[in-house]
Design a protein around this nucleic acid. Sequence first.
DNA 1: TGATACTTACCGAACGTTCAGTAGGACTAC
DNA 2: GTAGTCCTACTGAACGTTCGGTAAGTATCA
Lengths: 202, 202
Amino acid sequence: MAPDAPERDWSAAEAEIMEATYRALLEHGYAGLSISRIAAELGKSKAAIYYHYDAKDDLLAAFLEFAVDRFEETVATETGDEPTADLEHVVEKLLPLRPDEEQRQLQAVLVGLRSQAVTNEVFREQFTRIDDRLAATIREIVERGIDEGAFRDVDPSRVAEHILATVNGAMYARATTDRGSAAAATRVSVASYVDSELRRDP
Amino acid sequence: MAPDAPERDWSAAEAEIMEATYRALLEHGYAGLSISRIAAELGKSKAAIYYHYDAKDDLLAAFLEFAVDRFEETVATETGDEPTADLEHVVEKLLPLRPDEEQRQLQAVLVGLRSQAVTNEVFREQFTRIDDRLAATIREIVERGIDEGAFRDVDPSRVAEHILATVNGAMYARATTDRGSAAAATRVSVASYVDSELRRDP
DNA sequence: TGATACTTACCGAACGTTCAGTAGGACTAC
DNA sequence: GTAGTCCTACTGAACGTTCGGTAAGTATCA
């Protein structure tokens, strides 16, 4: 896996504010996110939030970090020695066949944040980094598979980008449409893609 | 292609408001979209907008329709008789190899709108419909290819969902990251996916 | 006693929305 | 042909609410 940046440590109060922000985002979406709403979720006054953060932008930047940490935690892979299984493992983390409520919520929040990357440079950089790392992780598995003779001699980078785009697209659709079964179908199709495009032995 | 719904006809004044909304969205994003901002782009007073729309929600619903129309216009396909070329054609419409500024902007706006589908039922239904139609369009081409013997006997539905997810994912990444070249790589990979997964003759 | 973690009470600006008023064209009536 | 009436498409000012943010005070603990 690509090297992780060291995780920031959140004080108890900060962590509570992050959780409150998370809940407020889930309920009202990014466009409806306000300090008052976060304070209401927090069960404290607005000023309590300003005691810990200088401005809404600072809080938002911190929350972006928080959400990204949480996401990358769930994706973190202990790689095994079977490339096919490793690939399957990463894909399952990114696009669970049957996501539980927690996974669904985190992805919903991330989609909301990510759309801000269209107009906001800070957000854009963060999500560029995420996708860079995910692509690298997948590429390394494919490279290993080729080295070990399990995979055919494909372009690892191209295949990694393809898998990442497919998984991201299905996750995006899952969060923004009622086509949940389509996402599941895509998930299955990724497996057969790996099988027909990558695996050496038929 | 899947049948289109009849397009609504916009009065000149309404069309101008839609264009102003489009520009305001481009500049400020969905979260920063306000009646004042739209009025500023329009070059008229806020009240002028309320003369044409009862509430912001109504305007937003109308704009969603407007943007979806514009999107589906650009995707509209005159299908030929060569399935491989038709597929290529649809993919090029959805994920242009070298998008011009207009295409880039429309996709940016759509990503902003689409993220609202996470919390907003009306938006969600609209984007579900879009993806349903796109999937159907691709599926029909694949089915035709199989019937004509150009494609192998794959599951058309599964393949269509895979292609749609990949294309959507790459488009999403293009709009929310600086990984433009990755999107281009994915675009190329879709072609080779079609080649290896679908084409009968090697 | 002073630092920490707040609350209460407020500010000006921006928000969506409404209202009274009006310029200008169109339609009839005389 | 011009006066009276009406309609469309606005303007500018204001409404109450919410926004992000702040100043001053307070309770708790070392």
